[in-house]
Structures are given as structure tokens and as C-alpha cells.
Amino acid sequence: MDKNDIIKEENRVYKRPKLLTDNIMHYCPGCSHGVVHKLVAEVVEELGLEEKTIGIAPVGCAVFAYNYIDIDWIEAAHGRAPAIASAVKRLMPDRMVFTYQGDGDLAAIGTCESIHAANRGENIVIIFINNGIYGMTGGQMAPTTLEGMKTSTTPYGRRVDLNGYPLKISPLFAQLDGTCYVTRQSVHTPANTRKTKAALKQAFQNAMNGLGTSVVEVVSTCNSGWKMTPAQANKWMVENMLVQYPLGDLKNTVKK
């Protein structure tokens, strides 16, 4: 069959989600953010929540998330997204409210807000992009930076005697009674991307069903910050990040 005979609406198996805007993302080539944005857009569309979803954008690389997904957004102060989400959800309980936060935003400056929102069991979704580095400000150490990992503020590698240990925050979420679903996923392969989408979908459904806080950690790459090609970064992530941050559900109290 000729190529042009195949490119027809009825034969399409994958298309760009409608909710993604035409704006070219400012992310570096190969950045995991783009994949997760796409998945969020797909999940919102598939659940028919376009008119109900409110995203809370962080400070960090995803600060401009509101330019890419065509829903209402609030851009938070650094780390405060879960506090904002708590208020929005309580004031408008029928809306779908999610935060989208990086490791610095969620696990350093915003630890208080994220832990307490989850502990209150706010019916929100926290999407946590963990790439072990501060991307936007130029590759400084994050709370999740691995031991020995070089960043611009740990140029000789993170030393636990100086900088403490990589913070595994999802297990902290998992032990809180307010969370119903805590999972750690990645988007480095097609199969993992599918799993992350399924996790996001469950999380969004949990929030709409009032089951408590869902946390979806996505172990991600920052190839620019890690100073690797995107493909090398994926490999490095599997060999290093996933050892410290193994994938899978940490908690799921929701019967399927």
C-alpha cells in the first residue's frame, strides 16, 4: 500500500492530544517533562475532565506548564502548589485539581506543604517529576540527587557527610493515612510510558472519587543537567536512579 493510502483518519493509531497547545515547549530536547505533559493531556481528555481540571504549576523547569496544556492553571510560588491545590479543591470540590512539581519544589522548599496536603488526604493528585537535579536554575543539587552525583553545587559529587542523603519522599507519602495511591513510574520506554499513563489515570479517578491524595512520582531524566545525550541519560537513569528509586506502586488502597 502506498504511504498516502495509509495516512487516513481511520488508520490513525496515535495522535497528538487535542489539549496540548501549539506552543513549542521550552524544554531541552529529550526532556521527560514533555512526555508527562502529553500524558496528562491525554488522561484529562480521556476522562472528559477538560472543563473541570485545574493545574497548579510549580517553580522550576515546569513553571511554564500552563503554556502547554489548554486548561485553567495557577502558577504557584516555589513549593506552595499543594497548599494552593488544597484551597482550590476545597472551595470547588467537583473540580479535578493536580499539582505538577519537580524535586526541588516538592521535596525541598515545599516538603511542608506537600506532606501536610497529603496527610490531610486532600482529594488532589500530586505529580512529582524526580530527575535529581535543579534544572531551571542551572543544575544545582536537589534533595534527590544521588550520592556521588555531580551537580553545579556538588562539583565533586554529592557527599552525604556534607549534603545528607538522597531524599526518598514517596515512601514518606506512602506511610501517611491521607494518601490512597503512591506510585513511582518512569517514561523512558514505551512500556513505562504506558504504565505512567495508567497510573495518572487512576490517580485522577481517585481524586474525583474523593479517595484521598494520590502521588505519582515519575523518575525522569535531565540530560542537559546530567550532561549526557537523552539516550545516555535514559541508560544512566536505569543504572543509577532506578536503583535508588525503584519503580512500582508503593501504596494502593483502591480496589480495582
Binding site: 488508520n11 493509531v13 496515535y14 495522535k15 521527560s32 514533555g34 512526555v35 502529553k38 514505551p190 510510558t193
Partner: peptide, 16 residues
């Protein structure tokens, strides 16, 4: 698979 991992949503896929 290509479209799933594409961070910039540049790929559409058709199949017969």
C-alpha cells in the same frame, strides 16, 4: 513506540 516516548508530541502514527 516512537510517538509514546516523543517529548514534543511531534509524531502521529497510522497503521493498516
Amino acid at each position: 513506540s516512537c510517538a509514546l516516548v516523543c517529548p514534543d508530541g511531534c509524531i502521529e502514527v497510522y497503521r493498516v
